[in-house]
Amino acid sequence: MAHKYSEIELNWVKWHAALGRQELADKFNERFGTTQTAEQLVSLRKRKGWLTGRDGRFKAGQPKIPGSGAKTPNATSFKKGNRPANYVPVGTEIIDGDGYRRVKVADPNEWEFVHLRVWEQQNGPIPPGAVIRFLDGDKQNVTPGNLVKVSKAEHLHLNRREYNAAPDEIKPALLSLSKLEVKLFEIQRNEER
């Protein structure tokens, strides 16, 4: 059966919330003659939003906790210039989870899409509202001749028609059709105004 905490008990736990779990339970039970477990009192603290003041970070001068295996940082921990085992240098290319080629352009972790870099090198900045697509549908083929700039509306029409999965002979027609449909929609919308 759940323990019904009195106002005095609640105030006591609130004022002693910074104590360690077991120490809190031991002192609470000694003070009030109860048999509350550490987990029950921690749960109470969490429900009430009473913070312990601990954030899990090392503090300067913090002693090692006996028997915990935890060590305090020292002069050799976190040396400047140490790199993690999964570090890759600037210029590294990867294929992301969506199949796009990306290149690392800066540390610590700045990546850009290769096809967008190729487009901008050949044609300048990509205007707002534009999307760069692959004419052959192959995200690995980032040659300038395989990239085309379309509007977001045209991009939507191409995706609805499953452009990337279409046979190569049909792709130019699908691209033209999407441009035509978007232009037709814009004309109809302007006439309605």
Rank of each mutant, 00 (worst) to 15 (best):
L24W: 12
K48D: 01
F185K: 15
S68M: 05
V13W: 06
A60E: 12
V131T: 12
L44W: 05
G97C: 00
I187Y: 11
S68I: 10
N82H: 11
L44V: 14
R54C: 00
T76C: 01
V148M: 13
S43Y: 05
S178A: 15
E192V: 11
F78H: 10
H115Y: 08
N29W: 10
A17R: 15
I170Q: 14
A85F: 01
L116W: 07
K59F: 01
F113T: 00
T37D: 11
A25I: 07
V118S: 01
G67T: 02
G49V: 04
V105P: 05
P73R: 15
R31M: 09
W50M: 02
K80D: 09
N11E: 12
T72I: 00
G97K: 12
A38C: 04
Q36W: 01
K139R: 12
A153E: 12
P73E: 11
V88M: 12
Y163E: 04
N82T: 12
A166C: 02
A38L: 07
T37S: 15
L41D: 07
N123Q: 06
P63E: 14
I126H: 08
E181H: 09
S176I: 01
R117P: 00
S43I: 01
L24G: 08
F113D: 05
K179I: 02
N123C: 03
T35V: 13
A166R: 14
A166E: 07
L10A: 13
W12M: 06
P89S: 09
G49S: 08
F58D: 09
E9L: 06
K139W: 08
N82F: 00
T143F: 08
P66D: 14
R161T: 03
E192F: 06
L147I: 01
D98Y: 07
